[in-house]
Simulated scan of single mutants.
Amino acid sequence: VPPGHPVDTFRREIWALRSVLLQMRQLYQRFDHLDDGEDASALVLEWRGLLNQLMDIEKHFQRKEHLFFSRLEQHGITGPSKVMWGKDDEIRALLRDLAQALQQPGLTAGEWKALVHTVGETVVKAVEEMMYKEEQILLPLCMSTLTEEDWAEIWQSSPLYGWCLVEPQEGYRPPEAVLREGLQLAGPDAIRLSTGVLTLEQLAAIFSTLPFDLTFVDADDRVVFFSEGRQRIFARSRAVLGRKVQHCHPPKSVEVVDRILQDFRSGRHDVAEFWINFRGRFVHIRYFAVHDRDGRYLGTLEVTQDVTQIRQLEGERRLLQYDDAPTEVQ
């Protein structure tokens, strides 16, 4: 595998994560050498730093779940996504628990040691087991199954999710012939709608300018379109296109996804709404059933919007006032 190939980068991330885990184990041994009444603050600070590095595993998981799993599913292989994604979520929960525990004030060295031998060791073991499964099972499976086109798609989409602890090396680049094209719609002519006419260029620009993210799932539950705004809330890559929407969510969410789709398809409901706190932002997520003029179900539209600033609005603004800085006109 050449340097910079997705497998090479993924493998180097595994090695980097193992190095962090080794440092954690060594730190745990130093905790054991403390008397229960000693000051453990310096070791706790070091532990927080190592955990911060380990939390970078989220980027590693995101690429695996949305790129590697997606391409395997195109070849009819769904086992890894069903099993590993659930385990990834368990690790995420453990990391959150440890991060919360490390913020506790006033603990004695004895109490910190107890934390080491419970949550601390559980986290290290869970991540070690996942790294083993990725290296011994997932990567060999991908290498024996995926095509050059699949690797080109993974390579091209990977920067959307970022890198874990290490950067890709220089070397691999897919042949230009297999790099996929961007958004393509049939025909160069203008698109005529009941309320007007748009060129393809205009339509694409409108989708990119909308202050919310769109994703459309067709009547067969496959993702067939998503908008590419300037600041998407949840990352999307072209690898998701054609993928069953159930496979784009963690296993614990699939039941809810299926219920929404069944209710929309049957006509029982037309709208489902959620709102969550996400990375300091208040995000409104809405799902709409899409039907043709005869009432036939065509699919489901997801609309995701950051409404943090909208929730803070008060009173009225009736006079023109720009909130963004002016752009210099040449």
Rank of each mutant, 00 (worst) to 15 (best):
Y172W: 09
V166K: 13
Y172P: 10
G196M: 14
D150V: 00
T147I: 00
A152P: 09
S194F: 03
R192L: 11
E149H: 03
V197T: 15
A204D: 02
S194W: 11
F207G: 13
Y172M: 10
S194Y: 06
G182H: 12
W155D: 11
C164H: 06
P174V: 06
E176C: 03
R173C: 02
T147H: 00
A186M: 11
V178H: 07
A186F: 11
A177P: 09
D213S: 10
W163R: 13
E201D: 15
E201P: 11
W163L: 04
W151T: 00
L203A: 12
Q169F: 03
F212P: 09
L198I: 06
L160Q: 13
P188G: 08
T195L: 07
V197K: 11
R180C: 01
C164I: 05
G187H: 14
A152M: 05
Q169I: 04
V178W: 09
P175V: 02
L203R: 01
L160C: 12
L165W: 05
Q169S: 09
Q169P: 10
S208Q: 13
T145R: 00
L185R: 08
W151N: 00
W155Q: 09
S208R: 11
I206N: 13
L165C: 10
L165D: 02
L183A: 06
P211C: 09
D150H: 03
L198N: 05
E167Q: 15
G182L: 09
C164F: 09
P211I: 07
R192C: 05
A190R: 14
E176H: 14
E176A: 15
S194Q: 14
S158M: 14
A205H: 12
Q184C: 03
G162A: 12
E170Q: 13
I206K: 05
E176S: 15
W155E: 06
T199V: 06
L160R: 14
L193W: 01
E170T: 12
Y161K: 09
G162D: 08
L193C: 02
L179Y: 02
F207Y: 10
P175F: 02
L146H: 00
V166R: 13
R180S: 04
S157E: 11
Y161C: 04
L203C: 08
R180W: 03
L179W: 03
D189Y: 05
T199G: 13
L193D: 00
A152E: 03
S194R: 12
D213W: 09
A190H: 10
L193K: 02
G182D: 15
Y161T: 08
A205Y: 04
V197F: 02
A177S: 15
G187F: 10
Q156T: 08
Q156V: 01
